[in-house]
Simulated scan of single mutants.
Amino acid sequence: MPTTLPIPIQFVLPEGWRPAPPDEVGAPDAAFVALHPEPDGGFTANITIDGDFWSAEEETLADIADGSVERLRRSLGAVQVAGRRPLGSDDSPGLAQRLTLTAVVGGVQRELVQSQVYLAMQDVADPRKRVVIRLILTVTAAQEDAVGADFQEFLRSVAPDPGTPGTETGGGA
């Protein structure tokens, strides 16, 4: 069963991307998954979204990102942090990191790239709640440049959803 985000967000998917049920595409911990329309050699680029409550006093965004890398290393082995940089402002911090990894997907060993973006947000219904939303693009190394522009477009559309409290992630085409 897919997870829900701690606060509702809204976003717009780039043209051609389609939502997919997280459980059916092997991402049961994701709140949302979108698939690219053109697979590369049998691998479909994807965007996943998840998130959790955050205590900025107890851990930094870098700590959270380090935890993601360690979880990937435990399941895949070969994971390298190729770059990391802060985003946003003191009031609305973020962090981006680029990972290179080797994974067996569909019985085939693949060289993949993940772009992970961590966004700290406040719940618009309850500003005392702070969360971190993690947005991940996973692509083959060959697709990175072409699909990366779609991911940047997607990231620019992500925002807290001022709509009905308690709703899940928004989305659209």
Rank of each mutant, 00 (worst) to 15 (best):
F43G: 04
Q122W: 01
L99G: 11
T169F: 15
L101E: 14
A82G: 02
S89L: 11
E70I: 11
F154Y: 12
I49A: 03
Q116H: 02
L72S: 08
W17L: 09
E58T: 06
Y118P: 00
E59A: 15
E57S: 12
V132G: 02
R84A: 09
Q80W: 07
V158E: 03
D63H: 11
G42Y: 09
G42E: 10
A141M: 12
S92V: 13
G166P: 14
Q116G: 02
E58V: 04
D91C: 00
T164A: 13
H36T: 10
P22M: 02
S68E: 14
R110Q: 10
E15N: 13
L87G: 02
G148I: 14
P21M: 05
A96S: 14
A96E: 15
W17A: 09
S68I: 08
S89P: 07
R18P: 02
G171W: 00
T102F: 04
E70R: 13
P165V: 01
Q80S: 10
R130Y: 08
L119V: 08
L135Q: 06
G163Y: 11
P22I: 07
L13R: 09
R85H: 11
R73C: 01
E58F: 07
Q97N: 01
Q152T: 15
F32N: 01
D40K: 06
Q152F: 08
E24W: 06
A103H: 01
E111I: 00
Q109Y: 02
S55R: 13
P28F: 11
I7Q: 12
L137F: 01
A103P: 00
D123W: 07
L99Y: 08
G88W: 10
V33A: 05
V158D: 05
T60Y: 02
D50F: 09
L112M: 06
E15A: 15
E168S: 05
G83P: 05
L72T: 03
G171S: 10
R134P: 00
T44E: 09
R134G: 04
A96R: 13
A78G: 01
F43C: 08
Q116T: 02
T44R: 13
P19Q: 06
V147S: 05
L35Q: 13
A141S: 11
R84C: 01
V113R: 15
F53W: 00
A159G: 14
G148V: 14
G148R: 10
T138Q: 09
L99H: 07
G51R: 10
K129P: 05
V25Q: 02
T169Y: 11
A146M: 13
Q122E: 14
A82C: 01
E111A: 10
Q97V: 01
R84D: 04
R18A: 15
L135M: 05
A45Y: 01
R85I: 04
S115W: 11
A56F: 04
P19N: 02
E24Q: 15
G83C: 04
D123N: 14
F32Y: 13
L137C: 08
V117L: 03
V113D: 04
A142D: 15
A27H: 08
D126M: 07
P165L: 03
G94V: 12
N46L: 15
E144V: 09
A56Q: 05
Q114I: 06
Q116K: 00
I9M: 12
T44N: 04
S89D: 12
Q114Y: 00
E38G: 07
T140S: 11
Y118D: 04
R98P: 00
G77R: 12
R71T: 07
D123R: 11
R110H: 04
A103Q: 06
